[in-house]
């Protein structure tokens, strides 16, 4: 069965793999490649945030009436991750290995604890509350996420 949980969790894993590609390029000192890979990673992250903030979260909020609940928290965490992405991009331009590694590690832990909350709590609630809309919603989400060139998982 296609669920919001499976669909969005798969996109989390795609973003993870794009992030690892940057890490591997940085580790081997290939800074130009790292910047290219980082571009793909950043784009995938932005698409994911946008899909949630413009499509999934508003539907959840309308359906549950919870406007200041979990979705607000998730938006706040997106803002923190956007800041970390900007800081990581700056470290890549500077070719600062220590700074990039430290920021990327922080971003990874931030991302994963955020993903845990979404995959274990918020997405299952979306599946529960948006049952009638899943069929129409998934292609819309797919369209939003298709902008980035993902690695299949």
């Amino acid at each position: 069965m296609h669920t919001i949980t499976n669909f969005m969790a798969n996109d989390h894993r795609s973003c993870d793999h794009l992030m690892v590609a940057v890490e591997q390029a940085v580790a081997s000192g290939a800074w130009a490649l790292a910047r290219t890979e980082f571009g793909r990673f950043q784009e995938a992250m932005q698409d994911h945030f946008a899909a949630e903030e413009s499509l999934l979260f508003p539907l959840f909020e309308q359906s549950t009436g919870m406007y200041r609940g979990p979705t607000q928290v998730m938006r706040g965490e997106h803002a923190q991750m956007r800041q970390l992405l900007a800081a990581a991009a700056a470290a890549l331009v500077e070719q600062d290995f220590d700074d990039y590694t430290g920021i990327a590690e922080t971003l990874l832990v931030m991302m994963q604890q955020h993903n845990l909350k979404e995959e274990n709590v918020l997405y299952p609630m979306c599946d529960q509350h948006l049952t009638d809309q899943v069929e129409a919603l998934l292609p819309e989400l797919q369209k939003q996420l298709a902008g980035s060139n993902k690695i299949p998982t």
Binding site: Q80, D98, D99, E105, T106
Partner: peptide, 19 residues
């Protein structure tokens, strides 16, 4: 990092984990 980031409210950046 998380608590400093929340305290700084995005205006004072927290040191990354490796720092």
């Amino acid at each position: 990092w998380l608590h400093l980031q929340n305290l700084g409210d995005g205006r004072v950046l927290a040191p990354n984990m490796n720092k």
